[in-house]
């Protein structure tokens, strides 16, 4: 029917970026399971997938009472030793019978939530993307917990270089003519709707996580530039406020680096409309210009004290 997911993204609570080995230790949530790690084009480490069993009301735009039983797949990841994500998703499918079966049935189909009774895919999708409903499936709190596990690791010093809120991306994928829509809400939540041709693959999850990562980078860089109050205070103070961006963020922008080739056109489609990279590059130039100006001013004052 459809797939729904939620990705939370935030700054790793450590003073500097952490090395590969530490990523591995921090993400080692379950003994016996290994942490997957890739080094190119950037260090990316992801915990094993864990399942959360659910038997609850599913979101519905028409506020119908729809019951779903099954499991949600979640994992935590660290990109560049610096950015944490907690990500959960579930495929929603029609159950073959209207009654709940033994857990062994659901465990045999990891990441699938079966709908008991009638439900329309569009109603579920609209309900999930809209306002979260109380006492229903809450992928957000599962993803938040998967972030918490990383953030509260005793291996981290918790002295992050700046404070920043987590962002939340809720996404829905349904079969259809390929299309993607990304919406920014007033608070820290964003929504993505994807229509994909053919069967759903976890590559769609990777795409959403990559979009969430870059949206967080852009949101955070905008915040740092805003906090710096360029023009509103002395040059060296502005530069001090901008420094964390240079130290911790600028090198992390690499859109679609981890996205399956078949799905890269979705990124391009969004770029054409939302101009993420153009905005990022403009901000980076602005930061570098400030650094250059400040250097020049320091040189001048050194020559003519």
């Amino acid at each position: 029917m459809l797939v729904m997911g939620e990705v939370h993204t935030g700054l790793l609570q450590s003073s500097g970026e952490i090395p590969e080995s530490a990523c591995r230790d921090v993400l080692h949530l379950m003994s016996g399971e290994t942490v997957r790690l890739s080094r190119r084009p950037m260090i990316y480490a992801v915990s094993p997938d864990l399942l959360t069993g659910v038997d609850c009301r599913l979101p519905s735009a028409s506020r119908s009472r729809i019951r779903g039983v099954g499991t949600v797949v979640s994992h935590s990841s660290i990109t560049g030793g610096r950015v944490v994500q907690g990500s959960s998703y579930a495929r929603v499918e029609r159950a073959e019978t209207d009654r709940r079966l033994a857990w062994s049935h659901y465990l045999a189909r990891p990441g699938v939530i079966e709908v008991l009774g009638k439900a329309k895919s569009s109603d579920l999708g609209d309900g999930f993307i809209g306002d979260p409903q109380p006492n229903g499936l809450d992928l957000g709190s599962i993803s938040a917990r998967f972030m918490d596990v990383v953030q509260s690791s005793p291996l981290l010093d918790r002295r992050a270089p700046f404070k920043v809120a987590r962002t939340k991306v809720r996404w829905v994928a349904q079969p259809g003519d390929p299309a993607i829509r990304f919406t920014l809400n007033a608070d820290q939540t964003r929504t993505i709707r994807i229509a994909h041709s053919g069967d759903f693959t976890p590559a769609v999850v990777d795409l959403c996580e990559d979009l969430a990562l870059h949206d967080w980078l852009l949101t955070t860089l905008l915040l740092i530039v805003e906090r710096a109050r360029i023009g509103g205070r002395a040059g060296p103070e502005v530069v001090a406020k901008l420094a964390p961006a240079v130290d911790h963020l600028l090198h992390l922008w690499m859109p679609a680096a981890r996205v399956d080739e078949a799905l890269v056109p979705y990124w391009h489609g969004l770029e054409d409309r939302m101009r993420f990279t153009a905005q990022w590059e403009r901000l980076v130039r602005r930061i570098r210009d400030q650094l250059t100006l400040n250097d020049a001013a320091m040189l001048r004052s050194a020559r003519h004290p």
């Binding site: 935030g10 609570q13 938040a144 918490d148 953030q151 918790r158 404070k163 920043v164 809120a165 987590r166």
Partner: peptide
């Protein structure tokens, strides 16, 4: 722990 991530 979550608020400490977000607020000074």
């Amino acid at each position: 722990s979550r608020l400490n991530e977000e607020f000074d």
